[in-house]
Amino acid sequence: MPIHEKSLIRPEDLKTHEQLVVEGVDVSGHWSTFIQTRVIADYNEALEEEVAALPGAEHIHRCWQCGSCTNACTVNALNPDFNPRFWIYLVRLGMQSELLRDKDIIWQCVSCNKCTYACPRDVNPEGVMKALSHWLELKGHTPKSPSMIFDEEFSEQVIRRGRIEEGRLIQRFFKRTGQTLNQEWLVEMVRRLLRHLPLALLARLGLARLLAPRSRGWAAARAAIQDYVGAQQARQRRALGLGERLETGAADAADTTQH
C-alpha cells in the first residue's frame, strides 16, 4: 500500500534552525529541517472492523489507495483537509489519533457520489464517509452533526407517516440545531416566494402543514420498519463494543451542535 507520509507530517513536528553549522558546513534554514521522531502507541487494531460493521463501509478493505476518490471529491475542492483516501488509509492501519484530528469535518461529505463513480475497486467511499461519521458519533468522539440531526428528523417523519412535509421538517431541524428562522436570506426567499403565489396554493400548503401528509395503510409498514431499525442499531452497538441503546430524545437534544 503506497504511503503518503507527507500527510502525516504536521508543521509542529518540523524542526529547523535559523543558524546551524555542523562540522564547518553551514546548514542554516531549509538545510537543517528535521522531522521529529514520532512514536505511535495507540493503534486501534479493531478500528477497521468496527467501521466496516456500519452500513456503507462493508468494502473498505478493497481500497488500494489510488486516490481517485479524493481527486474527484466535491468537498476536497473546497477544503484540502477533506481527504477520503487518507481517512480510509488511517482506518485500515488503525491510526485512531490521526483520524480524530479530522473528526469535525468528516460529516461534511455531500453524498455527490463522484468518489463512488471514480473508484476502481467498488469501495463505495461515500458510504465509508457516512459510516465514519456515524462511528465518531456512536463512540462519543463528536456530538451529533447537523447532518445526522437532519437525517434523524427526516427519517422519523418518513417512518411515522410514510411521507414528509417540508415545512415541519425545516421547523423541527432549526429548532433542534438552535437556529432562528428569522435569517435575512430566508425571509427574503419567503418574500419572493409569496410575490406571485396564488391564494389557492397558499391554502394548500397551509393545509399540508396542519394535516401532515401520510400514506394510507402505513401502520403495518411502520411497525415492520421500526422493528428492523431497532434490531440493526442494537447489532451495530454490539459490533462497536457499546452497551444496548439508551438514547432518548432528550439526550439527542443535548448532543446538538451549533452551526
Binding site: 456503507g56 458510504g127 456515524h134 437532519f150 427526516f154 400514506s215 394510507r216 395503510g217
Partner: peptide
C-alpha cells in the same frame, strides 16, 4: 398510496430501509 423513497436521508439511518 405512494410513500417517500427515503431521499438522501434514510440511507444514513439504514440503507436497507
Amino acid at each position: 398510496d405512494w410513500n417517500c423513497c427515503g431521499a438522501m436521508e434514510v440511507k444514513n439511518i439504514d440503507p436497507k430501509i
